[in-house]
Write a protein that binds this DNA or RNA. Structure first.
Lengths: 222, 222
DNA sequence: ATTTTATTTTAGGCAAAACTAAAATAATAT
DNA sequence: ATATTATTTTAGTTTTGCCTAAAATAAAAT
């Protein structure tokens, strides 16, 4: 009964999980095809297979949802991905914008023993280099109270704890303006015209950020 | 010109390399099929493909040999495999009989940057947990003067530096009689009847080993 | 309520990497 | 020198995971 999945199958589960996070409703074939950059018929094929393996519940034409089992596997992939990202940054000194592709490969290495030892070796970190929470061995995720930077009230202070967009372009932009996880910020102003914001940093520097940028930064009350 | 090979192709190159190490002559289709536990026609197919990619020189019916390029890739795979084995034992506390299968997966992760950083992180080790030498970034292998344990002359002293058979069964057997890399031994006697040997350890313990066992242990003069 | 548009599925193909059975070639033995 | 045996290759299938084109279904627009 060892439902060992192929790398392709695993990637579908991860994509469906990611979409479930962002949407309340069932996930459509096209959603998955767009996310994975493949053609819709390929997705239809795979959904049939994953339904047979009880990884998803699938009503033809009406979208899919992960089963308990499918969710379990998706979380274990996310766990592996994020732990490897911590390894790459903490131990091998990779920058936070360089780790995604390598972790994408490493997450498919099959060995529970390996990943549990890796976790211990890393000191059981709770968050990855982008501030995303790391599920524990049972798939449980620690949730943290966090809001988007643009949601701060005037003069409210907070700490940057995560980013929504984890693409290299956005991360390198944050590097260039010296914002990183742990940076303390204070909301100074929301520009009425286009919702740009002005924040103040601990070195008294003031910074103007577009609405889009501010939406992609997560903060926790300081 | 990025000749990125599939995992299957990489495994063929590794198998051919391993066979080249053990044989002087060209490698036959059957040799490869036996080593990889697959049918001969599958090998024939793949050899055609690898020849097209200039990874091997291949004369139909007369066996194969790695090209410079193919050898380069084979060595880089061996380098990755052995560095990951060091990581697993040194950092994650795996035993030397537990690392092979996981390293077999890790060796196919594609990133030169990753493996070079890993090497640095591990302190540029020269040997893996079984005493096999680790090729450097250019594919150069450090050769060490070593002989089989059974070749020691009477009363000669030496240190165990490697094993030929790296299977879990043999390694666990060595564990059970408390022989490991670094153990100092002295040859006491070669039994005429069946070439069994008697060695003396630093704690004065005397141990009798079969010819086959002694052939699978590499030593260097102390 | 029916037509138009968009989405999803089915049908049919392709490439990779394995397989078995049969044919071709080489090696060996008479 | 020819026949037998062993090895290797070719031919034809299978499975996985993708594709395009066409058909089926659902959603929307009139």
């Amino acid at each position: 009964m060892d439902h060992s999945l192929s790398i392709a199958e695993e990637n579908y589960l991860k994509a469906i999980q990611k979409l479930s996070d962002a949407q309340i409703h069932k996930i459509s074939t096209n959603d998955i095809a767009n996310m994975m950059n493949i053609a819709a018929p390929s997705v239809s094929d795979m959904l049939k297979k994953l339904a047979q393996k009880k990884m998803i519940s699938y009503e033809k034409y009406y979208g899919v949802k992960l089963t308990k089992q499918g969710e379990q596997i998706a979380f274990s992939l996310i766990r592996k991905h994020r732990l490897w990202e911590v390894f790459l940054t903490q131990k091998l000194n990779f920058a936070w914008d360089e780790v995604h592709d390598i972790a994408e490969q490493l997450e498919h290495i099959k060995s529970d023993d390996l990943i549990n030892r890796l976790e211990k070796f890393l000191g059981s970190p709770k968050y990855d280099p982008h501030g995303d929470p790391i599920p524990d061995a049972k798939g449980q995720i620690q949730v943290r109270k966090q809001i988007q930077l643009n949601e701060l009230k005037k003069n409210e202070k907070a700490v940057i704890v995560g980013v929504k967009d984890t693409g290299a372009v956005f991360l390198q932009f944050l590097d260039s303006i010296q914002l990183s996880l742990g940076t303390k910020v204070q909301m100074k102003n929301v520009i009425e015209f286009d919702q740009s914001i002005i924040i103040k940093l601990s070195d008294n520097r003031e910074l103007m950020l577009s609405h889009l940028v501010s939406q992609n930064i997560f903060v926790s009350p300081a």
